[in-house]
Computed example of a mutant assay.
Amino acid sequence: MQKIIMFVMLNFISALGFSQGIKIIDKPITYDSTRVRLSLEYLKERHGIVQKTPTIQPKIIVLHWTAAKTFSSTFNAFNSAKLPNGDRKDIAKVSSLNTSSQYLIDRDGTIYRLMPDNYLARHVIGLNYCAIGVENVGSADFPLTDAQLKANEELVRYLAKKYKIEYLIGHYEYTKFKGTSLWKETNPDYQTGKNDPGVDFMQKVRANVKDLNLKGAPAK
Rank of each mutant, 00 (worst) to 15 (best):
A68V: 01
L104E: 02
T145A: 12
G48V: 06
A207Q: 15
K69G: 07
D117P: 08
S73R: 06
L120D: 08
H171Y: 07
S95T: 14
K215G: 04
F12G: 11
F75D: 04
I169V: 11
D106G: 06
Y158F: 15
V205I: 15
S80M: 05
A151M: 11
S139D: 14
K3E: 15
T110I: 10
N128K: 01
E45F: 05
N195M: 11
I125G: 03
P116A: 09
T74S: 07
T53V: 14
V134R: 03
S101N: 03
K52H: 09
F201D: 09
K176F: 11
L10C: 10
L104G: 01
L63K: 02
K59H: 07
I61W: 03
K164L: 07
L10T: 11
G133C: 02
F78V: 00
P58T: 08
L16G: 13
M1I: 10
K162S: 03
L83A: 02
S80W: 00
Y129D: 10
V36R: 01
V8W: 15
F75C: 02
V50Q: 10
N187L: 12
S139E: 13
D90F: 03
Y163I: 10
I91H: 02
L40F: 08
I25Y: 11
L104F: 03
L104K: 04
S181I: 06
A131K: 08
M6F: 12
E154M: 13
E41W: 01
A15E: 14
L63R: 03
L40A: 10
T99Y: 01
D106I: 01
T30S: 15
A160F: 10
E153F: 09
I105G: 03
A160K: 12
I5W: 08
P143M: 10
R157A: 14
L149F: 11
N128M: 04
I25K: 13
L182G: 06
L63P: 03
E185P: 04
K82G: 00
A207G: 12
H64P: 02
K59P: 05
I56Q: 05
N76R: 06
G193V: 10
I56P: 08
D106L: 05
K161S: 14
A92G: 00
Y158D: 07
Y167K: 06
G48P: 09
A81N: 10
S96Y: 01
Y172V: 02
M1Q: 11
